[in-house]
Design a protein around this nucleic acid. Structure first.
Lengths: 191, 191
DNA sequence: GAGATATATATCAAACCAATATATATGATT
DNA sequence: AATCATATATATTGGTTTGATATATATCTC
């Protein structure tokens, strides 16, 4: 799902500027399950405009750059619906934190502790944020996605607390100096 | 965390070819929390080789392309450890599935049902896969990361089952034709 | 015998990311 | 009053990543 489609989706929630769309991915309703930077959003909006999938109203502001407020056109909405009807790509999760937990034995105990702490804090903060959102205004899928996110953060946070000992008390640094555990890699084990 | 660093990490588990490293991200121990395609792995290995962070042994094979087995050098391991000691980037999760659940009201009920089914199946399959892995050989962080992944898949799968009704029974398509819910976007609500 | 999947490397265009530049306002700290 | 950080707002750039494709063969399934 490319940033163009994502922008169309964002605009179904109401007219917005590129800056506002970015915020939606940063700390807004999309942040939980997608993200996009300015470097993708502004070109995407430009392309959508050229294809008449959105319109723009340029608002001159006193001492700031012009605000360009984008709106979805009917063909833009139609294309978005069409995109939603296509089979979804595989979920993608990438975590620098878990890489570090996985390679715990190549880290110092204090670094490991720091990663653990920041990770727990992250999950707790996110959970708190979602809990504070008033669910009344949402309907159906919106509520569902939000609750799913909340469940995720709560579960991960609980997991970290429950298994802290396994990671930190049982910590022992890798005894090998050459960096290999086997001479040859063995794959998943099911090949 | 770039693919070069990830390749170094993969090689700490044992010597491997680019193909094998890719498998590790595809269905191996890394797949849960990172991924990388051939288009990143092969150039990364080339760059690592040039920088003496890995070595390569080219094995001629009878009727297949030469196998290039890469090994970590001491300086490669040192660099990897250094990378682990740096503060981790924010986790990134992107889900085409949740985008569709979020925009449920812009989908047909049958398409929504299909997304739900494939998502549930995905989580259940992944959980089963992790459950079947023998944990005896792993230690510390390896076990921790694996169990964390298992907990994630089990929780998400349970969530989908528990809240199926909210998504599918309470489903109602968006009544609006113009695609907007408000005239102007309101952000998170906390600005 | 056709077709799909697995082994194995490699490349390329399109897309994306992180950082930076520009310019101003506001709020916090010293 | 000065400094600093954060927020508003658009835009660009270099480097990295993605997804698809090409090549060549073996094996397994229908």
């Amino acid at each position: 799902m490319d940033v163009k489609t994502l922008c169309l989706g964002a605009l179904t929630l109401g007219d917005a500027t590129g800056y506002e769309i970015h915020k939606m991915f940063d700390d807004g309703p999309f942040g939980q399950f997608y993200d996009a930077g300015y470097g993708s959003i502004y070109p995407a909006l430009g392309a959508l405009l050229k294809a008449d999938l959105v319109t723009v109203v340029q608002l001159a502001q006193e001492k700031r750059p012009d605000k360009k407020v984008y709106s979805l056109t009917p063909s833009g909405l139609a294309l978005f619906k069409k995109a939603l009807a296509e089979p979804p790509a595989k979920d993608r999760f990438r975590s620098d934190h878990i890489v570090r937990l996985f390679f715990a034995d190549y880290m110092s105990k204090s670094d490991l502790q720091a990663v653990y702490d920041s990770y727990l804090c992250h999950f707790q903060t996110q959970a708190e944020k979602l809990r504070s959102i008033d669910i009344q205004n949402f309907r159906n899928g919106r509520t569902f996605a939000l609750q799913m996110g909340l469940r995720f953060y709560e579960t991960m946070s609980a997991f970290l607390v429950e298994n802290q000992g396994q990671l930190l008390n049982d910590y022992c640094p890798n005894p090998m100096d050459d960096g290999t555990e086997q001479t040859r890699n063995q794959g998943t084990g099911d090949d």
